[in-house]
Design a protein around this nucleic acid. Structure first.
Lengths: 135, 135
DNA sequence: TGACTATATTATCATAAAGGAATCTAAATG
DNA sequence: CATTTAGATTCCTTTATGATAATATAGTCA
């Protein structure tokens, strides 16, 4: 039975031997990379975040994000193909909603990582400033 | 007390510490997207995976991955800038090691997501095959 | 049916990113 | 100090990606 992955992201001292990524075939690695690629575009992240409060149709997304229509449509297509959002046609409109909540899990882990890094940098800068009396 | 005091000092400027992705400024969202971008390249993932068993110098990474030298050097630079690996010069060589283990956490979440999606697709294909007696 | 609306798709352009060859830099060694 | 070696950087070419405008499609309603 495969070990259940942690559902909440804690700063875990996690056993690396549990990790299977290092054993993936090149094709599987490419799939993982491709998933990350979908998340690597600020406007796409913005779109998903706009859906956090609930399903929206394309027009609403265009309004809240300020992006162009064709642009939004294509981003949504990519997100849907990656399984991050789901499309629900309703009449002439198309409603989209988040279909994979691990998205937020991923983002929070990244945020935490970035936060730690920025804090470290901030400390170093303060050290440097403190060591520079001429300023 | 808000969930988990990750930092001891107060954040002077607004940072990513208590991250609700949906509330991030465009700049912070861009940082998150940029982090994902570093992970969106199969060869970079391959390099990080190669480091899972321990630190390696560039030559070793070139050998195990089969990538070109300039290429590996550039990928390592990106990974280091993202804080995913750390560089340790030793003599004329440069050893790299994983410096952020949440990398594996991220990959596992993605793997799980992909696995679920592939299972669903597999079921659908089986249904279709079963409903196609002419084959 | 024909006009209208919401969304998808296509074509095109500009920019970014990856790979490879060549070059540069710095540490070790004779 | 010249040479060798590991690694970083630069330059160039190719491919991928994102934005936009134009066009196509598919529901809806008069």
């Amino acid at each position: 039975m495969p070990r259940k992955a942690a559902t909440k992201n804690k700063p875990t001292t996690r056993n690396l031997d549990d990790c299977k990524v290092a054993q993936l075939s090149p094709e599987s690695l490419a799939m993982v990379a491709n998933f990350f690629k979908v998340l690597s575009e600020p406007n796409r992240l913005q779109i998903v975040c706009a859906l956090k409060s609930g399903p929206c149709n394309v027009t609403e997304i265009i309004e809240t994000t300020g992006l162009g229509q064709a642009n939004v449509s294509k981003h949504l297509k990519m997100l849907a193909q990656a399984g991050i959002v789901a499309r629900q046609p309703r009449g002439v409109a198309a409603y989209y909603e988040i279909s994979n909540h691990s998205f937020f899990q991923l983002c929070e882990i990244v945020c935490e990582t970035l936060s730690i890094q920025l804090n470290q940098q901030s400390k170093q800068i303060k050290e440097l400033v403190a060591a520079t009396p001429n300023l």
